[in-house]
Write a protein that binds this DNA or RNA. Structure first.
Lengths: 315, 315
DNA sequence: CTGAAAGCGCTTACAG
DNA sequence: CTGAAAGCGCTTACAG
């Protein structure tokens, strides 16, 4: 059972005959090496942790599918965890993952994770951090081109002749939020359009807030003819508010979302939105993880996933 | 470090003073026991595997959230895997989970898994099998009351005065499929309504099939005034087909779905459907797993999650 | 009540 | 090229 290890891992010098003997034994016994025992000595368990805010948020399932598929292809199994975006839970989760000696962690982190992540990541514990800038060895970033998306959306609305364009801002990752707001603001400015604070209303990135926010926005500035929403959930809420107010979409109010969540194309009017390739994002995260694992200590550039405006009915 | 184990697991006899000494040491060093090493000897890793068809199918994220939350509460981490409902992939997945020595497996199995699962489950490897009858020690079942849901839906349609009611059947788990079809057929019969094969069209449980199936159904039987769909995805496809055909929903055609996936209430017309409490289903699965783990070899009754008709706009 | 020893199933140098 | 030994970090009897 000692040389067995050598052949099972097809490495090292083994005589042909010996190898064959071992190989058939392995096959006949249905032998499968214990990842636990192996992990104890190699410090590799072939597992990674994926921590998202909430797997039941329609943004994440496709992301998860992307990392899961990519992980399976590379021989990894993945623990998935929800943080709800709150730090204490996130920390607990990260510790539990470490207890299981995962090879690395892919995280869509909360706002305040900074310091903790800094101390958590390290040699033998690489982290890929999605959608949040994070300068540090052992942590690698993959970002969504949020600003570009916001520009695309705003540009499109301007091109359609809208001048009074409001924005529903959601409280996602600070960077995402910042980029999307900046993309909107800069584009408005570039076209000499007004973009005072009155045109922006902020809140949690959920449907209910989209509804309430739109009501507020339109009562504050009834002249608004278009709204750019931080994400599709917010846009759905806005759609509801319009229905309630008797404002037709897109005739009375044009609406652009962000993300292109499932069913965004099924609702009526179908949502015009900035698509994020969520599956590709997940894949990218896992691939980057593999790179970090196979080349420890290397520095990696920020990876970016592109966005694309998909025009449907709402604007 | 030997008595340390005893105190870390607060069991056995340890002198107060000794315990305190160890406890502070543990705290100061930030010591965290390796689950790997422990697992090697105890055969418990505090991990479970969750294998679903496809996490990005809108039915599953909430289920996953349920098991994840419940698992976290019980101190477990969970590997989630996609099988795509195909046997070879399912088998590979199950083996990989076993390689990691998971304490148990929760599975939404494919059609043909039977024999394999039979041999796979066993002492020290309990399985909870969702939505599929499976008589065996070491495997426990949790089911959705599908037949009841189908009855509810059909009854409702009949009550609304519909007589020519079609059904879009999807190819989910055979039992689910069977139950939903039977629920529909029996109810039709009970009311003396026709229910020939012409009124049923079957295919994969996806949106595209809902579209195609509805087109076929309505060309075959133009007198149909109501459709009961195996699941919401199919119903969404039907909605599309109606739009294409110029049939108004619910005026010209009433539509009832099944599952109540996210956004079913956001589309227009909002979907009348049979709600399955997916989160509760997930929780139930994990709770059952915990029971099996803490009482190995015990026999457990089939657990069931209820359904509820939620009336919205489409019927 | 508390140490020292053996063993869980692997891999990794190290002798032969 | 191929064995025997040590060790990964724990837990579990077993002596003291």
């Amino acid at each position: 059972m000692k040389t067995a290890s050598r052949v099972a891992n097809h490495q090292g010098e083994v005589a042909d005959e010996t190898r064959d003997r071992v190989l058939t034994a392995i096959r006949e016994l249905g032998y499968r090496p214990s990842k636990l025992a192996r992990g104890l000595v190699t410090h590799r368990t072939d597992t990674v942790g994926l921590v998202v805010g909430d797997i039941s948020n329609p943004f994440f399932p496709e992301v998860a599918r992307g990392v899961l598929d990519s992980a399976e292809g590379a021989g990894y199994n993945v623990f998935v965890c929800n943080s709800d975006g709150v730090l204490p839970r996130e920390i607990r989760t990260l510790h539990s993952l470490a207890d299981h000696a995962v090879d690395g962690i892919i995280i869509f982190p909360s706002f305040e994770i900074g310091d903790f992540l800094q101390s958590f990541a390290g040699p033998g514990r690489p982290v890929v951090c999605a959608n949040r800038p994070f300068e540090s060895a052992w942590v690698s970033q993959v970002m969504i081109r949020s600003r570009e998306g916001a520009q695309l959306a705003t540009q499109y609305l301007v091109g359609k002749g809208h001048a009074a364009i409001g924005m529903l801002v959601g409280g996602g990752a600070p960077i995402t939020r910042h980029e999307r707001v900046q993309g909107y603001l800069r584009t408005m400015e570039a076209h000499g359009l007004p973009c005072c604070e009155d045109l922006i209303v902020a809140g949690p990135p959920v449907l209910e807030q989209g509804y309430a926010g739109t009501l507020e926005l339109l009562s504050r500035r009834p002249e608004i003819t278009a709204i750019f929403a931080y994400n599709d959930l917010l846009a759905l809420g806005a759609l509801r508010a319009c229905r309630r107010l008797g404002r037709r979409v897109p005739q009375d109010l044009a609406l652009v979302g962000f993300d292109d969540i499932p069913l965004a194309d099924q609702i009526s009017p179908a949502l015009t939105t900035v698509r994020v390739d969520k599956y590709a994002l997940g894949q990218l995260c896992m691939r980057r993880m593999c790179e970090m694992l196979s080349d420890p200590g290397a520095a990696f550039p920020v990876a970016e996933v592109g966005v694309e405006l998909v025009v449907r009915e709402s604007a």
